[in-house]
């Protein structure tokens, strides 16, 4: 692989190539999330959560998708069950989130142990940071549950997962990595794209679907 002189210079200064790649990928992932929101109409939990989940999925490699999605779904499911269980106690917000986080942590611990019993050592070998990222997803999820209801929260979680998976494929696409390392300036293109997304006033793809029944009577 041929590096751009700039990238080569970074590497000489001791910045790992992997770090450079990830930092250059972040604007692209963020742009992807913005595109999904403005043009497609898939909302997800803001921009931070899907971006960070994308990188968490990467950190689960070599079995990124399989384990990542499993952990993600577990977090959401446990989060939903916990809400149902805690609802009748009418607890205040932060203690409630604290309990939810604790239960999710324990649940993941159990999943790892079960994985170990069935010789899925790949699961237990996952480093702690992507796990923590997944667990903190719970706060976003609980907050949305309270504000917009369980159904919306669940939908947003699925959308977040969807965007993260697309992001995962984008970031782990070798050709794109090679392109970025050879021509790092193309990252600047994301500014241009985001500027036009920021001024985009057309209907979103999901809105075409939402309003489909009206078209005939317009």
């Amino acid at each position: 692989m041929t590096y751009h002189p700039l990238i080569a210079f970074f590497a000489e200064q001791g910045v790992p190539i992997q770090t450079v790649t990830l930092l250059l990928m972040l604007p692209i992932v963020a742009t992807l999330v913005a595109f999904f929101r403005q043009v497609v109409g898939i909302k997800a939990f803001g921009i931070y959560t899907p971006s960070i989940i994308t990188f968490a999925l990467l950190a689960f490699d070599p079995n990124g998708l399989k384990y990542g999605i499993a952990i993600f779904v577990s977090v959401i499911l446990v989060g939903m069950v916990t809400r149902l269980a805690l609802k009748r106690f009418r607890l205040l917000y932060l203690p409630r989130v604290a309990i939810t986080l604790s239960i999710i942590s324990l649940a993941i611990l159990i999943i790892l142990v079960i994985g170990g019993i069935y010789n899925r050592t790949g699961l237990a070998a996952i480093s702690i940071f992507p796990l923590l990222i997944m667990i903190t997803l719970a706060e976003k999820f609980v907050a949305t549950q309270i504000e917009k209801g369980s159904r919306v929260a669940f939908l947003l979680a699925i959308e977040t997962l969807l965007i993260s998976i697309v992001g995962y494929f984008l970031v782990s696409w070798d050709a794109l990595t090679a392109l970025l390392l050879s021509y790092p300036w193309i990252v600047l293109l994301t500014f241009l794209i985001n500027f036009s997304l920021g001024k985009w006033t057309g209907l979103r793809v999901t809105e075409y679907f939402r309003f489909r029944k009206i078209f005939r009577s317009l």
């Binding site: 403005q38 109409g41 001024k199 985009w200 006033t201 057309g202 209907l203 979103r204 809105e207 075409y208 309003f211 009206i214 078209f215 317009l218």
Partner: peptide
């Protein structure tokens, strides 16, 4: 024709940015 018709609809993007 479909796109022309849909231009009468207000979407989220236009609502936020233009109104």
């Amino acid at each position: 024709d479909f796109f022309k018709k849909s231009s009468g609809l207000l979407g989220m993007n236009a609502r936020n940015l233009e109104y």
